[in-house]
Design a protein around this nucleic acid. Sequence first.
RNA 1: GUGGUUGUGGCGAAGUGGUUAACGCACCGGAUUGUGGCUCCGGCAUUCGGGGGUUCAAGUCCCCUCAAUCACCCCA
Length: 429
Amino acid sequence: MLTTKPRGVNDILPDEVWKWHYVENYLRDLAGRFGFQELRIPIFEHTELFQRGIGDTSDVVEKEMYTFTDRGDRSLTLRPEGTAGVARSFVENKLYSGTLPGKYYYVGPMFRYDRPQAGRYRQFNQFGIETIGGHEPAIDSEAVAFAYEIFHGLGLENVLVHLNSVGCPVCRKAYRAALQDHLRPALHDLCETCQTRFDRNPMRILDCKSKHCHELVQGAPSITQYLCEDCQNHFDQVKKILEAMGIPYAVDQNLVRGLDYYTRTAFEITAGKEGSQSAICGGGRYDNLIEEIGGPALPGIGFALGMERLLLTLEQQGSQLQKPDSCDVFVAGLGGNAEILTSQLCHSLRLSGLRVQRDYQGKGLKAQMKAADRVAAKIVLIIGDDEIARQAVICRQMANGEQTTISVNDAVSYVQQKLSAIKVEGDIK
RNA sequence: GUGGUUGUGGCGAAGUGGUUAACGCACCGGAUUGUGGCUCCGGCAUUCGGGGGUUCAAGUCCCCUCAAUCACCCCA
């Protein structure tokens, strides 16, 4: 072949796409229940939005963006995440002039130039929510509860909520200094990346996966000890509400999120197996982002989950999603004489709202029956020379082999009747 | 970006330098001349991810390249 798909992208084939539909519908329904509305944002934005919004010390901005220049010499970037775009849209469309907080969700592809692995792709899909314009702890708790319910409601096991507060600029300044003091004696023992993090963003060292750094970080002061009074009260209230709602969580003082805009509440959700791709959802509060990109000083909070990782986890945990039926009626025409009637009948049945399939290659009846069986058709209509002569069709009910000959004119209404009878039987069972 | 493993029909998978590249599933056809799921029979890769090299001879050895996967990293 001429060429293959670029590295790190995927085709989602018909055999699998129904799972995506299932999960997407589930998420949209849940979003509606929690009071979120869809906001569709562009797939690319001006590069500076991500540089300023996400923060140019983050790895995502530093080395993972798909940035290109368009024909008008503008620097554009394929969105690596959704929050910056939603924030931009919120400000640009002056959504702050409506009822606050605004509650939005989005679903769609994101792009990061990473080295691909299972559950990590260069084009991947996220579902995410943002609540903008409210600082109340109940908003944080609601976001965490929503995220938890997504996985809990799908029947996943070992769903863990890791919760932390990363403080506000006020308390973070004090904490940052204390952390640097603690780590300074061991500075040259840290891994290379962490040495550069020491000045730029020492809190990221807490999150380092290198064993050695992990050990050095043990006994380091924790942000929780340095939270200012406001942040502490906020965090306490968030936890209190979560407990009241029955949402299980574990405070993880080493949890630091990789995007620079996070403040106060930060959380991640893992499910099932340990490993590098165990985090299926992450989010937190970003009280300065809206102002940072030139909007009013409004706080926000949100999370995003990786659709591929969610599907992968469902698979690993053996969840049986119900594959929807794809065919109500199969029309089997025999021989060239049946062609016209077959086409007419298929069309009428389809206009009446039924899902109809047929053969186009003049296969024998046996082969067509096999095909009907494969697509799980509930009814097969058979049209041969005998039937054409009598302007009739045979209606066969696949489940029990029952057959009736009916006139062509009655075919559509007869089939509909039969199908609803089959459906009622199924419902009773 | 670093390191490891892998790459044979649509899928899974044998093949330890020497003739026509096993087998299973799927698919197509027949037994059953107009009736699915079971059974039996038959068909289905001029070629082993791609390119180059060594050799009388390469799916098998060497080099390069692409891709998948795992760990690191990062994050969803």
